[in-house]
Amino acid sequence: MSAVPVSVRDATGPTVTVPRWWRGLSWRALVGAGGVAAFLVAAVLAGAVSPYSPDALAIGSRLEGPSAAHLLGTDQLGRDVLTRILYGLRPSLESGFAAIMMAAVVGVALGLPSGYFGSLVDTVVTRVLDLLVAWPAVFLALAIVLLLGTGELQVIVAIGLAEVPVFSRLVRSIAMVAARSDHVVAARAAGASSLRIMLRHVLPFVVTPLVVQFAIAAPQALVAEASLNYLGLGTHPPAPSLGAMVSEGQSFLAYAAGPIVFPILVIVALVVSLTLLADGLQDRLDPRSRIGAR
């Protein structure tokens, strides 16, 4: 096994421990993290970097190819494609993050008591989640958007809800094991309440796998966000979004490929970065690959 030891123990005295979680991060994780960081910076600095407004129309320069003035060309309304991509990153990253955050919070809120108490609580939670899982995630998201109307918030709820079962099941499985361990019995013997035990003696063991799951869910959420926007269920025009740009660009594909190809490339690059990061994090943080800390 190539796991990195967590502590170094010698026979003569107390043990020495170095915080090493950041060591042994693979090249994949570093490349992924670099890519994600670059996109984040680009989204945040969109206004400062770009000389154009994302909504500025220029009828005289429609569907132009890349040039010095418009690095990635212009779209059917003469808007700068690079500017719209930079601005379009914002809702994608925001919605994706918010959706997973929601899934994680709801997943913990359901999974923790489900795994800790077991029996009836577990049965009810599991059955309700089964109802969610029975639907393909995209159909579920579609149904929610159709039910709640279009908009960024609806997209967040739709994607978040679709991801809830994954998080809840993960938390539940860890909570089940932790709840039966001696340190939980010891806490109960000391008079701790169930709430205290769940928060102090079970939740800490959930954090690491949760981070990994967060990273795994991120690219999925991003693709889902782009898909919903592509279908016109997300942001309202003329606000830019990567998915919407792809769908708008379709009609003019015969005249110019830029408005559709560049957003797609950005989505792909972002998803690949996130996936690499998740992969690297998982290798590093997955408890099954760790020794020493049990």
Binding site: V185, A187, A190, R200
Partner: peptide
Amino acid sequence: LRQRAQMVFQNPIGSLNTRM
């Protein structure tokens, strides 16, 4: 009452919360 009686378990590391 649980103040007045306490437990010590077999597996020392298992009975301690390793995150504390």
